[in-house]
């Protein structure tokens, strides 16, 4: 039997790289400090979806997220770094799904429907995160911003623990 081409699914790879580009563009707000890990991350993401490597994808997305943290640190603004971090997450999620589809089904299989459903759900979650997170940031920054946000974080951790149980 001829061998099956196990490269990552096409549409997912394109979306993953697109998300990486969006992420990089967003964290440009942090200047060179954020762009260095960002560019490195994007290059790794591109290599990962070409070669079908989960480890590289995770590393690349990690660098993009690091870039987002640096951008937030350097610029002090919230919206664009948040967008950058969310885009990095979407890129990782969609890219990993594409690699999985490639491994399981091969490139010759029709996978569009599943890919788009997965990608849309991921983007939707990302948008909700950006909107809600930024709204909380805006409302809380009126009073005592940092303590409110720390409380928010503690709440989030408690929520996670509850979910894990």
């Amino acid at each position: 039997m001829s061998t099956v081409d196990r490269a990552p699914a096409r549409a997912s790879s394109v979306v993953a790289v697109g998300a990486g580009v969006v992420s990089l563009a967003a964290l440009a707000v942090g200047g060179a400090f954020a762009l260095v890990p960002g560019v490195l991350g994007l290059v790794l993401v591109v290599l990962a979806v070409v070669g079908g490597s989960r480890a590289w994808l995770t590393t690349g997305s990690g660098f993009l997220l690091l870039g987002a943290l640096f951008a937030a640190l350097a610029s002090g603004t919230a919206l664009l770094p948040l967008l950058g971090a969310v885009a990095a997450m979407v890129g990782w999620d969609v890219g990993e799904n594409g690699i999985g589809l490639g491994e399981q089904l091969g490139r010759a299989a029709r996978t569009r429907h599943a890919e788009f459903t997965h990608a849309s759900a991921s983007v939707l979650v990302g948008l909700v995160t950006v909107v809600v997170g930024y709204a909380v940031f805006l409302t809380s920054s009126g009073g005592q911003p940092l303590s409110a946000l720390v409380l928010l974080l503690v709440g989030a951790v408690v929520l996670l623990v509850a979910l894990r149980a």
Partner: peptide, 11 residues
């Protein structure tokens, strides 16, 4: 002490 960084925990 940077709220913008803290916010990224949301993701």
């Amino acid at each position: 002490s940077q709220p913008a960084v803290l916010l990224l925990a949301v993701v």
